[in-house]
Nucleic acid binder design. Structure first.
Lengths: 338, 338
DNA sequence: GTGAAAGCGCTAACAG
DNA sequence: CTGTTAGCGCTTTCAC
């Protein structure tokens, strides 16, 4: 069932049918209803390829996921993707997922852009200095960054207020009487980690506290690195009374390290972790957490945003969305005990 | 730079240029080289949308990932996807990822099929009785199943020989002197779990052993359910000397449960787990495992297969691929000690 | 309010 | 071997 058949069936021109279906104004109400009904009963579905060709749009947006053989995939990424596809579906826009090796990533963008396969991109896992963003900005391809890079004034992004989250965490601990606060963080090449780190320093400064260099520990986005970092922290002669961990994978490892040493979490040592504890974990402790919209929700919002970006009739300011985190109180922190 | 511009530049017809670029035989070698070189230097990239329209093919395959809000995404899925996209890229075929709620899943297939957005599908997470497969078979849409369903004779699939894997595991334990063997498994609605379970029973039968009903424990695809299952097993008055676990998420939990009870893995209790221990885990024990091609490798092979399926000139037998698992010896099993 | 006709960029018969 | 000519199915000026 194509447009021609449908219009023949209705004794109308393809033009009219097309306009009726696409909600143009200059069609009589009666005709429109007749057309829509016939389309429904005959099960007419416009061919998206033909439509794309005629309109010069791909009706698809791309997302490139850099994943080497042997890499561990990030389950949260899939959840974002799920939200994105859901938010894109009503507009009949598809999500094209391309994976690329880290070094071949720009080529992949290039292929997709020049091949006119997508109308725009979502760039995930933003780095502080991100050559993908530089590249896209330079080529003028519409895109939305999931996370800001260092230079974030002149392109659209969706992000969390990472500084604010850390400040909230510090404030809470300070209110509980803590003054010796440690911080475990992922690589500062990730901009979210950089921002959270900056927020931690700022929160400390605001509270009149000086962060101790030996209590600022790098870890990674992995359970094991969190375990190691926490172990190293606990090996020190002078211990903090509280610790903030900037991602929940490292968080799992850190908590396990404390348990292994018989430390009473929330009493001996207060802990606040970003995003709580991941869903499928053996730990049952309710962690005090910095929480943000879920990955799915974020995906949904990003779907709306990227559509606006592509439409191109919004001000840049309306294409930059910063979500405010909150503190979800749990049982992993408590008053500072001398 | 489009085809017309390129042919104008070369003083050739669009036809000839098109044929030269698409590797048709009836073009003189000289012309072809000239064309290819010009295309390269001028950076010509054919418009895939136009090509799709002309050829009546979407040049994309779809993969539907059912993910409800709140579900935990399976990182391995992303690894498969990565392999698939990689394998599809040389043929300029895109991977369209659509997520769907469980109940809306068939609608999603329908939309993609009738919208002619894809030439075929890969169906992941196959169930033993899978309505998606029934649906696709019935509508005649080309597809490849990642995992067989109960009725698997008349459609293409890629799968592991799950029965064989369990038999291997049992045989190894029996050779080590074990006779009391427990089995922890995911929901038997998943066909892989059903098959591994069947393989376990078969292996026991072949060894002249009768499986004990109370040592067959259901768990899920999750750490915590593995922990629970193993705890329940260890609470029993009579204990087995070995246990096989059919997935590595439950495996993590089970191992942790043993450690928490001070059980010496490989001495007090021998353990074999499918797929080893997942990458980012706090456990360091080298597990004896049933191993299979990695997710990425599987994805690559599936990419080849689905292309054959779509081409449609292979026998069904060549479109069904069964990979043989192997045993990777580790430190988690040992001789049965009375 | 409706229709005729010209593309969108490429492929594929069919001639030569 | 190469070129001419129709499409693929839809959108969109431009007339009426």
């Amino acid at each position: 069932m194509d447009l021609k058949a449908l219009s023949l069936h209705l004794n109308l021109s393809m033009t009219t049918v097309s306009r009726a279906l696409n909600g143009y104004s200059d069609v009589s109400l009666k005709t429109r209803q007749r057309v829509i009904e016939a389309a429904q009963t005959l099960g007419y579905q416009p061919n998206p390829v033909a439509r794309s060709l005629a309109r010069g749009k791909a009706n698809a947006i791309g997302i490139v996921y850099p994943l080497e053989a042997g890499d561990v995939a990030d389950p949260r990424f899939l959840e974002v993707v799920s939200g994105i596809t859901e938010g894109l579906a009503p507009a009949k826009i598809d999500l094209l997922l391309a994976s690329a090796t880290h070094k071949g990533e720009l080529d992949t963008y290039d292929r997709l852009v020049h091949g006119r396969r997508v109308d725009g991109f979502i760039v995930a896992r933003t780095l502080r200095h991100d050559e993908r963003i530089d590249y896209l900005r330079q080529t003028g391809v519409p895109f939305l960054a999931y996370g800001r890079s260092a230079q974030c004034n002149d392109y659209p992004w969706f992000d969390f207020d990472n500084e604010a989250g850390s400040v909230l965490a510090v404030e809470r601990l300070v209110a509980l009487g803590h003054r010796r606060i440690a911080y475990i963080h992922a690589s500062l090449d990730y901009n979210f980690a950089f921002q959270r780190h900056a927020g931690f320093l700022q929160g400390m400064r605001m509270a009149g506290l000086a962060p101790e260099a030996q209590w600022l520990l790098p870890a990674g986005l992995a359970r094991r690195s969190g375990y190691t970092a926490m172990s190293r922290l606990l090996d020190q002669p002078a211990l903090p009374s509280a610790v903030i961990i900037d991602n929940n994978l490292a968080g799992v490892g850190a908590v396990r390290a404390m348990l292994d040493r018989g430390i009473a979490i929330g009493r001996d040592l207060s802990v606040i972790v970003y995003d709580g504890i991941p869903p499928d974990t053996l730990l049952t402790l309710k962690m005090t957490s910095v929480v943000q919209p879920t990955q799915q929700e974020s995906g949904l919002r990003m779907a709306q945003l990227i559509q606006k970006v592509i439409a191109g009739d919004d001000l840049l300011a309306d294409l930059q969305m910063l979500c405010q985190p909150e503190i979800l109180p749990g049982e992993s922190d408590g008053p500072c005990r001398p």
